[in-house]
């Protein structure tokens, strides 16, 4: 019957529409309100100004540094996928330890990243040991 191909197309379209609505997880929400401005809605970054998170080797290779970067910001040269970035990133003093842990899992496992979860105890440990920084906050 001729209706079935159309029905199928319609279904695919509907699935596509729901898919496009995207991720409503807690991590996605924190990301959207605190990080997406700079790193982009899909972690794509912006030229040499804001480094990408999608496909970033840094997220895999510097797992232990992520928590302190997110809390205190960072203002040293970072090399991500072979490219050097040097604009300052502001800290996020208002995010709790839990929120930072959720966020780390989110950025390490979104947009094609598949770097696995980091246990909360590790994040908490890292946060307790963060070097105090003069570049905190704004």
């Amino acid at each position: 019957m001729f209706a079935w191909p159309i029905l199928l197309a319609g279904l695919i379209f509907l699935i596509y529409q729901f898919g496009a609505k995207g991720d409503n997880s807690a991590g996605a929400k924190i990301y959207k309100s605190h990080c997406a401005n700079c790193h982009g809605d899909s972690g794509e970054g912006l030229r040499s100004l804001y480094p990408p998170l999608a496909g970033a080797d840094y997220l895999k290779d510097h797992e232990a540094d992520l928590a302190c970067i997110i809390r205190n910001g960072v203002d040293v040269d970072l090399i991500i996928n072979g490219k050097t970035y040097n604009q300052p990133m502001p800290g996020n003093q208002l995010l709790s330890d839990q929120e930072i842990a959720i966020l780390i899992d989110h950025i390490r496992n979104s947009w094609g990243n598949d770097y696995g979860n980091v246990p909360f105890s590790k994040v908490k440990n890292a946060l307790d040991l963060c070097a105090p920084t003069s570049k905190s906050g704004k």
């Binding site: 159309i6 029905l7 319609g10």
Partner: peptide
């Protein structure tokens, strides 16, 4: 077509038209 498939069919066609 039975009544139900007909309704779905119409719904899908109108959705597709709106999308197009």
């Amino acid at each position: 077509m039975n009544n139900f498939t007909e309704k779905i069919f119409l719904l899908v066609v109108s959705l597709l038209l709106a999308f197009a």
